[in-house]
């Protein structure tokens, strides 16, 4: 289990490093923990390795296991802090009203807990020993995450954005401002990076997919698993469904975000 967790974390860290323009300079990213959530995330992730790594060593070399609970708590704490930092990277961006919400890191934590629990359940199922309370907390955490996500959607749907194109240009007018010619014919970095948006129709559909895959189906599967004997495939299904769900949710999280800078490129409000 620990191996799985460590592997997942490592894959995550490596892949975000590969997205960098200069991965070889990645170590520099730990320096600005005073102000930067991205830096904090890195620091937290690395700090989490310490207890987790120690646990691994203990397990590997069969050392004294007394410190294990403490290390586990530390590792869990570290993981939570990391996840929280990740959430805060987004939540701290004032430029995107869909992200700049306290609910964002909360959901990050809730989703991490829920999906983590699902993974935990599957692993337990593989070793054929699923305590009921874990299963129940699985359903519970899914439900909590679901409620957070729904209130998040409710929030962002009501928020029409504080800024208009006229404000972005500083022109005092009630009239509509329309772009006449963009600075460049083909999309530029900012438009590609921040201008990606998903149509309203698709968004509704994708939210349903998220609801179903990330929350409802896994809850059903886990609930069924609690009552059935062949739990293992059900937990697998729950996890797969949640995995699909979380991918869609992540994608939607980005696609529904509106960046203020897009006011210069044709968005009316942000």
């Amino acid at each position: 289990m620990l191996v799985v967790a460590l592997a997942l974390v490592t894959v995550g860290l490596l892949s975000s490093m590969l997205h960098l323009g200069h991965p070889e300079r990645a170590h520099r990213a730990f320096s600005q923990w005073r102000s930067s959530w991205l830096s904090r995330e890195g620091v937290a992730a690395i700090l989490t390795y310490i207890p987790a790594g120690l646990m691994g060593l203990i397990w590997l070399f069969d050392w004294d296991t007394k410190s294990l609970p403490l290390l586990a708590i530390l590792a869990a704490l570290g993981a939570s802090v990391t996840v929280y930092c990740t959430g805060m990277i987004y939540a701290s961006l004032r430029t995107i009203r869909h992200w700049n919400l306290a609910l964002v890191p909360v959901f990050y934590l809730a989703a991490a807990a829920a999906t983590g629990t699902l993974l935990f359940l599957l692993i337990l199922a593989i070793f054929d020993q699923v305590p009921l309370w874990v299963a129940i907390s699985g359903v519970g955490s899914l439900f909590v995450a679901l409620m957070i996500k729904r209130s998040y959607w409710y929030r962002i749907d009501r928020d029409k954005g504080n800024y208009t194109t006229a404000m972005a240009l500083g022109i005092e007018t009630e009239a509509k401002v329309r772009p006449l010619t963009p600075p460049h014919t083909m999309p530029n970095f900012v438009m590609r990076e921040m201008g990606f948006r998903v149509g309203r129709k698709h968004a509704t559909k994708l939210r349903r997919v998220t609801l179903a895959c990330l929350f409802i189906l896994p809850m059903l599967f886990v609930a069924l698993a609690m009552t059935m004997s062949w739990a293992q495939p059900l937990y697998t299904l729950a996890l797969i469904s949640a995995a699909i769900g979380i991918i869609v949710e992540r994608w939607l999280f980005f696609a529904e975000a509106e960046h203020v800078a897009m006011l210069y490129y044709g968005t009316d409000r942000a």
Binding site: H19, L20, G21, H22, P23, R25, A26, R28, A29, S36, L38, I89, L93, R94, T95, I96, N188, F189, V190, E193, M194, H259, V260, A261, M262, Y264, Y265
Partner: peptide, 22 residues
């Protein structure tokens, strides 16, 4: 010399004033 190209700063700019050089 120290930028790692994570692009986060460009997300933080409301004016779309930062340009990443791929």
């Amino acid at each position: 010399d120290t930028c790692i190209g994570c692009k986060l700063c460009s997300w933080a700019c409301p004016y779309g004033a930062r340009e990443y050089d791929h």
